[in-house]
């Protein structure tokens, strides 16, 4: 822009990044690619490529056998569907009952003991979150035997971590001034919780619960694969006898339920918040 060249230095070449940053970035990408190739080789070491090459053929076979879906099978799906919804709903309720106390123990501003109870609550939450509901179901079926109870407990145990984590984060984000004002009236600890904290986290709590219920509907649809009841058992049974037209019907039912539950949860969340 300037018209008078004041110094003799050559025009600097513009780079989007400093040289060091560029090298780091390149190195990072190189590392990613190398890691990818390495992982790919490890992973595919046992792959039977014959099956993979056959896949298009297998797919068309499968679809030929699955169509037309056997719609009359519907009449035997109502009961499992009802079970699936019950597993999700009761499981969510049970999960909430266990998650709420844990969340209050885990939030740094409400925990009675930072040294002992808080790490314990956080550990429970992490454990529950790390283990997928299907694995919980696997465990519980192995312990309690197949049936709805195992499914409900599996959903409940998985929900603890999800609800607990989001709820304790919401508790930690409450406005301190409101709590301070309630403290200044001479309220007891329980009253401070009831008047200062609970009203502030209530909308978040409703939102989280309904959201989890929506996820649980999806998850409970497949728990039957490991014997924990619901529509998944029908899926498992139909697949075992290679009754693909029935499998198609079940998949359509599951998809429909998921869409409806998503719609319900979006509607409730909008109504509450």
């Amino acid at each position: 822009m300037t018209t008078t060249p004041t110094t003799q230095t050559p025009t600097p070449v513009w780079h989007p990044r400093t040289p060091k940053a560029r090298i780091t970035l390149w190195f990072f990408w190189l590392l990613t690619v190398a890691l990818f190739v390495y992982c790919w080789n490890l992973m595919t070491a046992n792959t039977m490529w014959v099956f993979v090459y056959d896949a298009p053929q297998a797919a068309s076979d499968l679809f030929n056998r699955a169509f037309p879906p056997r719609w009359t099978y519907m009449e035997r799906l109502w009961k499992p569907l009802w079970d699936t919804i019950n597993i999700a709903t009761l499981g969510t309720l049970l999960g909430i009952m266990m998650a709420v106390p844990l969340a209050f123990l885990a939030a740094s501003n409400t925990t009675p003991s930072k040294v002992f109870l808080r790490p314990f609550a956080l550990f429970c939450i992490v454990t529950s979150r790390s283990i997928n509901s299907l694995i919980w179901a696997l465990l519980l079926v192995s312990i309690l035997g197949p049936g709805l109870l195992a499914g409900i407990l599996a959903i409940a145990f998985r929900s603890i971590g999800f609800i607990g984590k989001l709820l304790y984060e919401a508790i930690e984000e409450t406005e301190v001034s409101q709590v301070e004002a309630i403290t200044a009236t001479g309220a007891s600890q329980a009253q401070i919780l009831n008047y200062g904290i609970v009203p502030q986290v209530l909308p978040a709590f409703y939102g989280i619960s309904v959201f989890r219920w929506d996820i649980n509907i999806r998850e409970s649809a497949i728990l039957g694969l490991v014997g924990a009841g619901g529509i998944g058992s029908q899926l498992q049974a139909s697949m075992n006898v290679l009754a693909w037209p029935q499998v198609m019907v079940i998949l359509v039912v599951i998809l429909g339920t998921v869409v409806v539950s998503e719609w319900v949860s979006a509607w409730v969340r909008k109504a509450v918040i």
Binding site: M43, T44, N46, M48, F51, V52, A55, A58, A59, L62
Partner: peptide, 11 residues
Amino acid sequence: FFVALFGFGAF
């Protein structure tokens, strides 16, 4: 579905 199409395993 993918297991049915591509066989058992990591792929």
